[in-house]
Protein backbone atom coordinates (compact mmCIF):
# COMPACT_ATOMS: atom_id res chain seq x y z
CA UNK A 1 0.00 0.00 0.00
CA UNK A 2 1.29 3.43 -0.91
CA UNK A 3 -0.21 6.90 -0.77
CA UNK A 4 -1.29 6.94 -4.45
CA UNK A 5 -3.16 3.67 -4.11
CA UNK A 6 -4.78 4.68 -0.81
CA UNK A 7 -5.93 8.07 -2.11
CA UNK A 8 -7.06 6.37 -5.33
CA UNK A 9 -9.19 3.86 -3.42
CA UNK A 10 -10.62 6.60 -1.22
CA UNK A 11 -11.46 8.65 -4.31
CA UNK A 12 -13.20 5.60 -5.78
CA UNK A 13 -15.13 5.10 -2.54
CA UNK A 14 -16.02 8.80 -2.42
CA UNK A 15 -17.40 8.64 -5.99
CA UNK A 16 -19.66 5.73 -5.11
CA UNK A 17 -20.89 7.45 -1.94
CA UNK A 18 -21.52 10.76 -3.77
CA UNK A 19 -23.65 8.95 -6.36
CA UNK A 20 -25.67 6.98 -3.80
CA UNK A 21 -26.24 10.08 -1.67
CA UNK A 22 -27.19 12.21 -4.67
CA UNK A 23 -29.85 9.70 -5.73
CA UNK A 24 -31.06 9.13 -2.17
CA UNK A 25 -31.25 12.79 -1.10
CA UNK A 26 -32.87 14.10 -4.29
CA UNK A 27 -35.04 10.96 -4.65
CA UNK A 28 -34.03 11.07 -8.30
CA UNK A 29 -31.52 9.51 -10.67
CA UNK A 30 -31.99 12.14 -13.39
CA UNK A 31 -28.85 12.57 -15.48
CA UNK A 32 -27.39 9.25 -14.33
CA UNK A 33 -26.77 6.46 -16.83
CA UNK A 34 -28.30 3.25 -15.49
CA UNK A 35 -26.36 1.40 -18.20
CA UNK A 36 -22.99 2.55 -16.83
CA UNK A 37 -24.10 1.49 -13.35
CA UNK A 38 -25.10 -1.98 -14.58
CA UNK A 39 -21.69 -2.27 -16.26
CA UNK A 40 -19.99 -1.35 -12.96
CA UNK A 41 -22.03 -4.01 -11.13
CA UNK A 42 -20.84 -6.52 -13.75
CA UNK A 43 -17.26 -5.25 -13.31
CA UNK A 44 -17.20 -5.74 -9.53
CA UNK A 45 -19.01 -9.07 -9.68
CA UNK A 46 -16.63 -10.59 -12.21
CA UNK A 47 -13.51 -9.11 -10.57
CA UNK A 48 -14.23 -9.96 -6.95
CA UNK A 49 -15.08 -13.62 -7.50
CA UNK A 50 -11.61 -14.02 -5.98
CA UNK A 51 -13.01 -12.82 -2.65
CA UNK A 52 -12.03 -16.14 -0.97
CA UNK A 53 -8.35 -15.33 -1.81
CA UNK A 54 -7.68 -13.38 1.34
CA UNK A 55 -5.23 -10.50 0.87
CA UNK A 56 -6.06 -8.24 3.80
CA UNK A 57 -9.01 -7.03 5.86
CA UNK A 58 -8.85 -3.77 3.91
CA UNK A 59 -9.00 -5.61 0.59
CA UNK A 60 -11.92 -7.83 1.61
CA UNK A 61 -13.90 -4.98 3.14
CA UNK A 62 -13.47 -2.70 0.11
CA UNK A 63 -14.49 -5.48 -2.28
CA UNK A 64 -17.68 -6.14 -0.31
CA UNK A 65 -18.49 -2.40 -0.17
CA UNK A 66 -17.93 -1.95 -3.93
CA UNK A 67 -20.11 -4.94 -4.83
CA UNK A 68 -22.89 -3.97 -2.40
CA UNK A 69 -22.86 -0.29 -3.41
CA UNK A 70 -22.99 -1.11 -7.12
CA UNK A 71 -26.06 -3.33 -6.66
CA UNK A 72 -27.68 -0.75 -4.38
CA UNK A 73 -27.16 1.90 -7.09
CA UNK A 74 -28.67 -0.30 -9.79
CA UNK A 75 -31.60 -1.04 -7.48
CA UNK A 76 -32.24 2.66 -6.84
CA UNK A 77 -32.14 3.49 -10.55
CA UNK A 78 -34.16 0.60 -11.96
CA UNK A 79 -36.54 -0.11 -9.07
CA UNK A 80 -36.97 2.48 -6.33
CA UNK A 81 -36.61 5.68 -8.37
CA UNK A 82 -37.43 4.12 -11.73
CA UNK A 83 -39.85 6.95 -12.59
CA UNK A 84 -37.00 9.50 -12.51
CA UNK A 85 -34.66 7.43 -14.70
CA UNK A 86 -33.94 9.29 -17.91
CA UNK A 87 -33.90 6.28 -20.24
CA UNK A 88 -34.59 8.35 -23.36
CA UNK A 89 -31.09 9.82 -23.07
CA UNK A 90 -29.41 6.59 -21.92
CA UNK A 91 -29.16 5.03 -25.34
CA UNK A 92 -25.57 3.83 -25.58
CA UNK A 93 -25.39 0.31 -27.05
CA UNK A 94 -23.62 -1.55 -24.24
CA UNK A 95 -23.20 -4.74 -26.25
CA UNK A 96 -20.51 -2.86 -28.20
CA UNK A 97 -18.57 -2.62 -24.92
CA UNK A 98 -19.39 -5.94 -23.24
CA UNK A 99 -18.72 -8.29 -26.16
CA UNK A 100 -15.36 -6.83 -27.27
CA UNK A 101 -14.20 -6.71 -23.62
CA UNK A 102 -15.07 -10.37 -23.22
CA UNK A 103 -13.46 -11.48 -26.48
CA UNK A 104 -10.32 -9.48 -25.64
CA UNK A 105 -10.22 -11.11 -22.19
CA UNK A 106 -10.34 -14.55 -23.86
CA UNK A 107 -7.47 -13.57 -26.16
CA UNK A 108 -5.21 -11.48 -23.89
CA UNK A 109 -4.98 -12.65 -20.28
CA UNK A 110 -2.36 -13.79 -17.76
CA UNK A 111 -3.76 -17.28 -17.43
CA UNK A 112 -6.53 -19.12 -19.30
CA UNK A 113 -8.68 -20.06 -16.28
CA UNK A 114 -12.27 -19.05 -15.53
CA UNK A 115 -11.37 -16.74 -12.63
CA UNK A 116 -8.46 -15.13 -14.45
CA UNK A 117 -10.41 -14.54 -17.68
CA UNK A 118 -13.27 -12.99 -15.69
CA UNK A 119 -10.82 -10.81 -13.76
CA UNK A 120 -9.29 -9.68 -17.07
CA UNK A 121 -12.75 -9.07 -18.55
CA UNK A 122 -13.57 -6.86 -15.54
CA UNK A 123 -10.43 -4.81 -16.10
CA UNK A 124 -11.25 -4.25 -19.81
CA UNK A 125 -14.93 -3.68 -19.03
CA UNK A 126 -14.16 -1.11 -16.33
CA UNK A 127 -11.95 0.91 -18.66
CA UNK A 128 -14.94 1.69 -20.91
CA UNK A 129 -17.89 1.32 -18.49
CA UNK A 130 -18.24 5.08 -18.05
CA UNK A 131 -18.89 5.65 -21.79
CA UNK A 132 -22.72 5.39 -21.53
CA UNK A 133 -22.58 8.07 -18.79
CA UNK A 134 -20.28 10.36 -20.78
CA UNK A 135 -22.45 9.76 -23.83
CA UNK A 136 -25.51 10.79 -21.83
CA UNK A 137 -23.80 14.00 -20.66
CA UNK A 138 -22.82 14.84 -24.24
CA UNK A 139 -26.32 14.05 -25.47
CA UNK A 140 -28.07 16.31 -22.96
CA UNK A 141 -25.20 18.82 -23.19
CA UNK A 142 -24.98 19.31 -19.44
CA UNK A 143 -24.50 17.67 -16.06
CA UNK A 144 -25.53 18.67 -12.57
CA UNK A 145 -22.62 19.77 -10.37
CA UNK A 146 -23.02 16.76 -8.10
CA UNK A 147 -22.83 14.44 -11.13
CA UNK A 148 -19.67 16.27 -12.19
CA UNK A 149 -18.11 15.74 -8.74
CA UNK A 150 -18.99 12.05 -9.01
CA UNK A 151 -17.33 11.78 -12.41
CA UNK A 152 -14.26 13.68 -11.24
CA UNK A 153 -13.77 11.43 -8.19
CA UNK A 154 -14.35 8.29 -10.29
CA UNK A 155 -11.94 9.41 -13.03
CA UNK A 156 -9.25 10.49 -10.54
CA UNK A 157 -9.15 7.05 -8.95
CA UNK A 158 -7.66 5.30 -11.99
CA UNK A 159 -5.33 8.24 -12.68
CA UNK A 160 -4.00 7.84 -9.11
CA UNK A 161 -3.63 4.11 -9.73
CA UNK A 162 -1.30 4.91 -12.64
CA UNK A 163 0.95 6.77 -10.17
CA UNK A 164 0.63 3.75 -7.84
CA UNK A 165 1.77 1.43 -10.65
CA UNK A 166 4.77 3.63 -11.45
CA UNK A 167 5.65 3.69 -7.75
CA UNK A 168 5.29 -0.09 -7.42
CA UNK A 169 7.36 -0.71 -10.52
CA UNK A 170 10.21 1.39 -9.19
CA UNK A 171 10.07 0.17 -5.57
CA UNK A 172 8.87 -3.46 -5.85
CA UNK A 173 9.59 -4.29 -9.49
CA UNK A 174 5.90 -5.28 -9.62
CA UNK A 175 3.78 -4.54 -12.65
CA UNK A 176 0.68 -5.85 -14.38
CA UNK A 177 0.56 -4.83 -18.03
CA UNK A 178 -3.13 -5.65 -18.48
CA UNK A 179 -4.16 -3.38 -15.62
CA UNK A 180 -1.72 -0.65 -16.66
CA UNK A 181 -2.79 -0.42 -20.32
CA UNK A 182 -6.51 -0.62 -19.45
CA UNK A 183 -6.01 1.94 -16.66
CA UNK A 184 -4.38 4.37 -19.08
CA UNK A 185 -7.23 3.92 -21.59
CA UNK A 186 -9.73 4.48 -18.77
CA UNK A 187 -8.03 7.68 -17.63
CA UNK A 188 -7.69 9.03 -21.17
CA UNK A 189 -11.46 8.68 -21.66
CA UNK A 190 -11.96 11.18 -18.81
CA UNK A 191 -9.50 13.79 -20.11
CA UNK A 192 -12.09 15.84 -21.96
CA UNK A 193 -14.31 15.79 -18.90
CA UNK A 194 -11.41 16.70 -16.55
CA UNK A 195 -10.74 19.76 -18.70
CA UNK A 196 -14.37 20.90 -18.51
CA UNK A 197 -14.51 20.17 -14.77
CA UNK A 198 -11.45 22.28 -14.00
CA UNK A 199 -12.33 25.15 -16.31
CA UNK A 200 -16.04 25.30 -15.47
CA UNK A 201 -17.31 23.38 -12.44
CA UNK A 202 -14.48 24.44 -10.12
CA UNK A 203 -15.22 28.06 -11.06
CA UNK A 204 -18.80 27.63 -9.91
CA UNK A 205 -20.32 27.23 -13.34
CA UNK A 206 -22.52 24.40 -14.46
CA UNK A 207 -20.96 21.81 -16.69
CA UNK A 208 -22.44 22.73 -20.03
CA UNK A 209 -21.11 21.64 -23.37
CA UNK A 210 -20.77 24.14 -26.20
CA UNK A 211 -23.78 23.85 -28.51
Amino acid sequence: MNIFRLVGDLSHLLAIIILLLKIWKTRSCAGISGKSQILFAIVYTSRYLDLPNFVSMYNTLMKIVFIAASYATVYLIYMKFKATYDHNHDTFRVEFLVLPSFVLALLINHDFTVLEVLWTFSIYMESVAILPQLFMVSKTGEAESITSHYLFALGSYRALYILNWIYRYTTEDHYDLIAIVAGIVQTVLYCDFFYLYITKVLKGKKLQLPA
Binding site: K63, H110, N164
Partner: peptide, 10 residues
Protein backbone atom coordinates in the same frame (compact mmCIF):
# COMPACT_ATOMS: atom_id res chain seq x y z
CA UNK B 1 7.24 -9.46 -12.43
CA UNK B 2 3.51 -9.77 -12.85
CA UNK B 3 2.11 -12.07 -10.18
CA UNK B 4 -1.38 -12.89 -11.33
CA UNK B 5 -2.00 -15.62 -8.74
CA UNK B 6 -3.38 -13.06 -6.34
CA UNK B 7 -4.56 -9.65 -7.47
CA UNK B 8 -3.85 -7.52 -4.44
CA UNK B 9 -5.32 -4.33 -5.91
CA UNK B 10 -8.96 -3.37 -6.17
Amino acid sequence: SSDFDIHDEL
